[in-house]
Each structure stands twice: as C-alpha cells, then as structure tokens.
Design a binder for these strands. Structure first.
Lengths: 155, 155
DNA sequence: ATAATTGCATAGTCAAACTATGTAATTGAA
DNA sequence: TTCAATTACATAGTTTGACTATGCAATTAT
C-alpha cells in the first residue's frame, strides 16, 4: 500500500491511474524504437505537417535537439521535408508512407497489449471503458480549447 | 486532422487519449526536477520499499543506470537504504519524509493543472470523470492481477 | 535600406545511459 | 562441507544524446 494517498475521484487519482496505465502498457509492449522518436512521428501525424521548432516546443526539448531527431527520422525515410512556400526559412515536415506505417505499427503494438486486458472484461465493463475514453476525450477538448486563451505568456 | 485514425471506443483510442492527457499535464506544469527521478520516487512509494534491480526493470533501464539514479536520490536525502535482513546482498530502498514530501508536491503540482481543467466542467461532467477514473482503476486491477500469471517468462 | 527578428543548422561541452566487469552474499550439488 | 553457479549491487570506460552558444539565411519592422 502506498504511503501517500488521495481522495477518491480526485484529479490526482485520475493522473495516477493514467500514468500507471501508460507505464503498464509501455512495459508490456516491447518496441525496439526510442519512444521519443515515435512521439515525434505522432505529433507530425496529429498536425498533418509541422515545423522543427513547433515539435521542439511540444516535446519539451531544445530546437537543436529536435533538429537532430528529425534528421534521424528523415534518414530512416519516415519524415519528408519540403520548403514552406510562404516562408523560405521554414521547412514543413510530413510523414512518408513508411513513417505512417511505422507509427501505425507502434500504435497497434501498444493497442494489442491493452486489448488483451480488455478481453478479460465482460461487456458492461468494456462499455464503461468506452465511456471513459469519451469522457477523457472531452477533457482533452477543453484542454486544447483552453490552450488558445493563454498563448501570449511571458517567456 | 491526423492521417491515421482508429475506430471509436477502441483500445488504441484510449491509449491515444491517455498519452495526450499525460503530455498536456506535463507540458502545463513546470517542474524543475527530472521526471525520471520522480517516477522512481513514485515506484518506491507504490511498493513501500523496493530493490535497485526491481526499479530498473519497471523503469526500463539498466541496473547500473538505476544505481546512479538512486544514488542521486539518496544524496538529496529523499531515499534511504537499509540492508535486507533476509538477504545481505540486497538493499531495501524506502522514501524518507522529505522524499514523500517531494513526491506529494510533484503530484499536487500536476493535479492542480488537471483541476483547473475540471473546474471548467459542469457537475455531471465531473461525475463522468470520476466514473472514468474508477473504470481505468478497474482496468489496472486486471493488469496487476494478470501480471502474476506471467512472471515466469523466458528472458 | 538597414536593423531586429525568426527558423533552422552546426560546433563544442557535458550529463547520462549502456556494456562489461568486479565483489560480496546466497544457493545448490557433489 | 566445499566449491561452482547464481544473484544483487557497484564501478570503469565508452558512447549516445541533450544542451548552450553561435552562425547563416529569410523575413519583418522602422
């Protein structure tokens, strides 16, 4: 039993559960690739296209670090670069077909681990999981909507 | 819109939501400490006490790496080591009072970010979030129960 | 037009992870 | 019991990878 504990239904508890679910799935899906690279692929996929500096910001790393990461992904043929017609300084990064496939594979590998768990649930429990997914999705929508209100912060 | 997509209510979607929620909270709570160290504290807290090699296993790193991490935590006075009376080779790691406080602080910092989000929800929505927390907790219970059945794997 | 800014790349330093190996304690077999 | 095998952890040395500082080219502002 953990020493520290928190009330039921609290935000802290949700975070705790989310972190542990993440960790469990990561632990039980052996994936040869560095997770940091997969996250970059995932971000580019989410945005359709992205700039190096944007990726550095969301990945919480410096811009040179992201530059080298992207170079590695490009060397593997998973990311393509095209110059932005509106701004010749910037380079728009997109996923290649192979990059999409690798990302899909990574996601499927992780999903299978979770599916194996859900297979041990009965129908109403699985329905609860789907409801939970929708609920957390709604929470994320609020987060992303909220983000736009605070984009002018002091650096 | 992302190129790759998956069906609603699927395990993949749950993982996606969970990862993004995690990332959003991490991104919006500025914490001066390396997250890897907090995760170690969290694991020791979860187990009450732990060995270096156990922590290395769950943290997906080599044993020497975990040794140095633990040494850093011990140097900060957050982790205490005691020799296992049943096995003089092993050292049992526990959280100190300060370590507990640091961990609680880290969790509270992250929780506040999520609470700010939930404050923008109405009562029934918050109730849904609590239900989601319980559901994912149940999923984790299945995971942890399942773990005991596969502890004799081929390395 | 020129200064300031922005986006990315490169250079160099440093922290941190890994492999290989060593030491001490425990377990098992002859 | 005694000696080999195993286990838990620590140490040494190498290498990967992240950061700061800086440079160059394109863009924006005055």
């Amino acid at each position: 039993m953990p020493k520290s504990d928190h009330g039921p239904g609290s935000a802290a508890e949700l975070l705790d559960v989310v972190v542990r679910l993440n960790r469990w799935v990561t632990h039980h899906s052996d994936w040869p690739l560095p997770l940091a690279q997969v996250r970059v692929l995932s971000q580019i996929d989410e945005w359709g296209q992205a700039r190096t500096s944007d990726l550095a910001r969301v990945e919480h790393c410096s811009q040179p670090t992201m530059t080298t990461r992207v170079q590695r992904l490009q060397a593997r043929g998973w990311v393509a670069r095209a110059s932005d017609p509106l701004d010749a300084r910037a380079t728009m990064l997109t996923l290649t077909e192979e990059g999409c496939a690798v990302l899909a594979d990574a996601r499927a590998t992780r999903a299978r681990v979770l599916e194996a768990l859900m297979a041990r649930m009965d129908a109403p429990e699985r329905e609860s999981v789907q409801a939970a997914t929708r609920t957390l999705g709604a929470l994320l929508d609020i987060a992303y909507a909220h983000r736009r209100h605070e984009q002018n912060k002091t650096p």
